[in-house]
Amino acid sequence: MIQPHDSIIVQSLGRFLVPVVQLFGLYVLFFGQYGPGGGFVGGVILGASMILTILIFGHDASRSRLGKKLLHGDGVGMLIYAGVGGLCLIGGGEFLNYAHLDIPGLETASRRSLGILLTQIGVAVDVAVSAISIVFSLSAEEIIEDSMNV
């Protein structure tokens, strides 16, 4: 169990840093089509901001904020990704062929651009939630003493 950090410097810096890191993560996620970055890195940065919250404000503080239900949200990103593929199927194309996304008023290339963006969001959600849930489970309880002496 990770306790809140004592130092007021760490606490105040954390309050300042966490929103900045989250903003940067969103930037990397949505700018991945124009520069280095993308869903994977953006998701990891978003997850890292949550991990920073856990490390600074303790296990309980972020649990009350994020909710234990987060552990069950692991598949949402997968659902988004596969759902985009399913929408392509509904639109009459192959699985994950974004050109067949059934959105009126968009040309083919713009549809594919939109499909890339949506799937990147899916990857980001999946990676972020996986990272946070691993950290949660690693920091869930205090040390089991016996396991060291086996």
């Binding site: 089509q33 990704y81 994950l96 890339i116 799937t119």
Partner: peptide, 21 residues
Amino acid sequence: DTHTPNVVTSVLMDYRSLDTM
């Protein structure tokens, strides 16, 4: 094809989308 200037992203997410999934 994709209106995506970053070729790496367009290859990963569009041409090789199933692999990424």
